[in-house]
């Protein structure tokens, strides 16, 4: 029996009086693509940020690839095995796309410049923006920037990819190019946790859907079953409201 890649045990997180995550326990298997959805404030992004300990959780633990995050001495090392993509891309504006991608491999993993650039070129080709390699983020469109950000996250050959609303800040025409890249990643067996409102993606690409509300996991199901047959009232309400907009 394969072990889960990510084990979340009794995770809780508060901001002052606000409970962002309420005693969450959930596991994610390697090779699966999981969409996490829910109304705003439900804790989806917080959960994601706990997985690579960008947020310090109050109680509970996250076990990634057998290692406890709470007990870890060198969190940076663990983070280099997890890639993250942000809503606002967060490319470094003072570095070219190429340098954005090669920064971490060179300074975290000690890869030399030529090797790092060769790998970066492959990644850029994979996400379809090889010709933008030496441009600066400001010269790229939103969709191109996000694809560059995905390449940057992939540069360290992570075991897990986290996507925090990757298409929410994009103009509609550019959403599909990013979703396409994510689709390819999923098909190639990458373990992915995706916080998104893109229900089409959830339905067609994701293996599972996790529905959260008010800091708790309300429902978890295979994506087909989730949309066709939501178990909880909250989930039903959410799906109706979201699908209405499409």
């Amino acid at each position: 029996m394969t072990l889960p890649l990510v084990q979340i045990n009794n995770l809780s997180l508060r901001y002052g009086n606000f409970v962002a995550l309420d005693d969450i326990s959930i596991d994610f298997m390697p090779g699966t693509c999981v969409v996490i959805c829910g109304p705003s404030g439900s804790g989806k992004s917080s959960l994601l940020r706990c997985v690579n300990r960008l947020e310090d959780f109050d109680t509970g633990d996250v076990i990634f690839d057998g290692q406890s995050l709470k007990a870890a001495q060198n969190v940076s090392k663990i983070r280099s095995n997890i890639g993250m993509v942000f809503q606002h891309f967060e490319l470094y504006p003072h570095l070219s796309v190429m340098n954005n991608i090669t920064l971490a491999p060179r300074y975290v993993n000690g890869v030399n410049r030529d090797e790092a650039e060769a790998k970066a070129n492959k990644l850029l080709e994979r996400v379809g923006i090889l010709d933008q390699a030496h441009k600066y983020p400001d010269e790229l469109s939103g969709g191109q920037q996000q694809r560059a950000a995905i390449a940057r996250a992939l540069a360290l050959e992570p075991k897990l990819m986290l996507f925090d609303e990757p298409t929410s800040a994009l103009d509609p025409e550019m959403i599909s190019e990013v979703l396409q890249v994510m689709r390819d990643l999923a098909r190639n067996g990458m373990t992915m946790l995706v916080v998104t409102h893109e229900m089409g993606f959830a339905r067609d690409v994701a293996d599972e859907v996790v529905f959260m509300d008010k800091g708790k996991v309300i429902e978890r199901n295979e994506s087909g079953s989730f949309f066709d047959n939501p178990q909880s009232d909250r989930a039903k309400e959410f799906i109706d409201r979201v699908l209405q907009k499409i």
Partner: peptide
């Protein structure tokens, strides 16, 4: 923007 810090840390820096 705080996101720059997050992005950098997330790559293991």
């Amino acid at each position: 923007p705080k996101g720059q810090f997050l992005a950098a840390y997330s790559t293991g820096l």
